[in-house]
């Protein structure tokens, strides 16, 4: 698991590489937590380079959603595909967190205020 990040205005973009399971969700959570400066309101999680994610990842994303919601912000995902998409749908996560094909698209929708409530 490798993690990178960048910021765009008040949005933190986190790029995940590798598999996401229970072993590394704590690590991802800690990383994101440390990157969230007081002015950050929104979070974009890029899964473009993630080949495997199980329900531990769903729990981690939901946790971040609650955290950003408290800051009156939102979370967007990028590159959810294959079986990740099936569990994303199965868990109902898609009803509260949008999935985009590129980070630019995700950023644009956040700027435009297009996100699920």
């Amino acid at each position: 698991m490798k993690i990178d990040s960048s910021t765009a205005g008040n949005t933190l973009i986190v790029y995940l590489f590798g598999d996401i399971d229970h072993h590394n969700t704590e690590l991802i959570k800690k990383y994101i937590h440390e990157c969230i400066a007081p002015d950050i309101k929104n979070l974009v999680i890029s899964l473009e380079n993630v080949e495997f994610m199980d329900s531990s990842g769903i729990g981690m994303v939901l946790g971040r959603y609650k955290e950003m919601k408290e800051k009156m912000g939102t979370v967007a995902l990028v590159g959810v595909k294959g079986n990740m998409e099936r569990i994303y749908t199965l868990s109902g996560l898609y009803r509260i967190i949008n999935n985009y094909s590129t980070t630019d698209e995700a950023l644009k929708s956040i700027q435009d205020g297009v996100h699920n409530e």
């Binding site: 959570k29 329900s55 769903i58 729990g59 981690m60 079986n83 199965l90």
Partner: peptide
Amino acid sequence: PLYTSRPEEERSGMGFTIMEAF
């Protein structure tokens, strides 16, 4: 679905549901 015995731990409670679905 969605049941977890550890609500404080960010578990989604989807484990068995996913096993059944897949």
